[in-house]
């Protein structure tokens, strides 16, 4: 494979029993990690070992997998690695831990009567807008899971699937929290949240943005747009600036646990998206062309994402102790830093 040193050869030189290693795995470091051994080439490719082409194709001529499924091009898609090396076992460990922490927070709040300590205005905010973010997470889930199939290597497909699973977990955590609050405080319904999502003026630019994500047909665009635009601006804006910080200030015992766990999952996807962007931009042959495409995507999505954040000011204004201006500034700074880390211009497209 282009530019790759065969792992088997490397190990043979070190005197390890070559027949006890997966020699098709090209490790990123000196030795193959469990993640690499268990993931790589589980999705076969005509660019790897399927030297006879695709055996099964679409009626329109697309092969089992299709190089044209993304505008981007690189020498070897299977050379990409998730920097945090997430595979199924740590995924379940972390996901289950998130849910356990949330449940423990609910138990603790009930046992100690902590919900009673929340100011009325914060409770009102939770009733009105606390669950609306679930629709954002769910909307992103619905496109991520649909685009995962077309990705051109196992490491990418698995990453997108697990990202989708995290979005669904986050969405459901908000809804279940709403159920718990409904039980404890009353009048916290998903119907009211849905009504806000569908009708409230402040939420409409966000809904428009999330619905537009459903029109993405290029799986790589999904990674770039979600990871470099929508999540750092809107996602972090909602989770950290609208929910986490104010909830802490309002003695909310559960919301911070939900938001912090979601932010921890976002940190994984941020790293994944950043590594992916660096990977495509530094490709020797296609890097320059990829940069044009990625910048075009950013120019297409960033203004709308910023506008969606701006439109949320009225929502922030009803959340006690929320600071819209500071929150907006923080997410913008973080997003610019992320783009810079990817080697992209921090200039905001018009």
């Amino acid at each position: 494979m282009a530019g790759e040193v065969r792992a088997g050869e490397r190990r043979q030189r070190r005197g390890e029993d070559p027949e006890r290693q997966f020699q098709w795995v090209v490790p990123k470091k000196r030795k193959a990690s469990v993640y690499e051994d268990l993931t790589l080439d589980t999705q076969p490719s005509v660019h790897r070992f399927m030297r006879n082409g695709w055996y099964c194709s679409f009626p329109d001529g697309r092969g089992t997998w299709d190089d044209a499924s993304t505008e981007l091009a690189v020498a070897t898609w299977s050379a990409f690695r998730d920097p945090n090396e997430l595979w199924e076992r740590p995924y379940y460990q972390q996901g289950a831990q998130c849910e356990k922490e949330i449940d423990a927070a609910v138990e603790g709040a009930r046992a100690e009567g902590l919900n009673a300590g929340m100011p009325d205005a914060w409770v009102e905010f939770l009733r009105r807008d606390g669950q609306v973010t679930a629709f954002v997470e769910h909307g992103i889930w619905s496109i991520a899971t649909r685009r995962s199939r077309a990705a051109l290597s196992d490491v990418l497909t698995h990453g997108i699937v697990l990202y989708a699973a995290m979005k669904q977990r986050q969405a459901q955590a908000h809804v279940i929290h709403g159920m718990d609050l409904d039980q404890d405080l009353g009048d916290v319904t998903i119907e009211a949240a849905k009504e806000r999502w569908l009708q409230a003026e402040a939420w409409q630019p966000t809904r428009r943005l999330v619905e537009r994500m459903g029109t993405i047909t290029d799986w790589a665009e999904l990674i770039v747009v979600s990871g470099l635009v929508v999540e750092p601006l809107l996602g972090a804006g909602l989770r950290r600036e609208l929910l986490l910080r104010p909830a802490l200030a309002n003695a909310d015992p559960v919301t911070p646990v939900i938001a912090r766990n979601a932010q921890r999952e976002w940190a994984w996807w941020r790293d994944f998206s950043q590594a992916f962007t660096e990977f495509v931009l530094t490709d020797e042959e296609h890097g320059a062309a990829n940069r044009d495409i990625v910048e075009r995507w950013l120019a297409s999505w960033e203004p709308e994402a910023r506008a969606a954040v701006d439109a949320l000011e009225p929502v922030f204004s009803t959340a006690p102790r929320a600071d819209f201006a500071a929150g907006r500034e923080a997410v913008v700074i973080d997003q610019e830093a992320l783009k810079a880390a990817c080697g992209l211009s921090t200039e905001v497209p018009a």
Binding site: D103, V106, E107, R110, A134, F135, H138, S142, I143, R146, A171, Q172, V175, I176, G178, M179, D180, Q183, I190, E191, K194, W197, L198, R207, R208, E211, R212, G214, T215, I216, T217
Partner: peptide, 26 residues
């Protein structure tokens, strides 16, 4: 934690879908 009804939880979660009005999925 008081045991949540699976059916009720699922009914609430199922509410997360909505009919798109700005962009139809492609």
């Amino acid at each position: 934690t008081r045991r949540r009804s699976v059916t009720q939880t699922h009914e609430r979660v199922a509410q997360l879908g909505w009919k798109r009005s700005y962009h139809e999925p492609v």
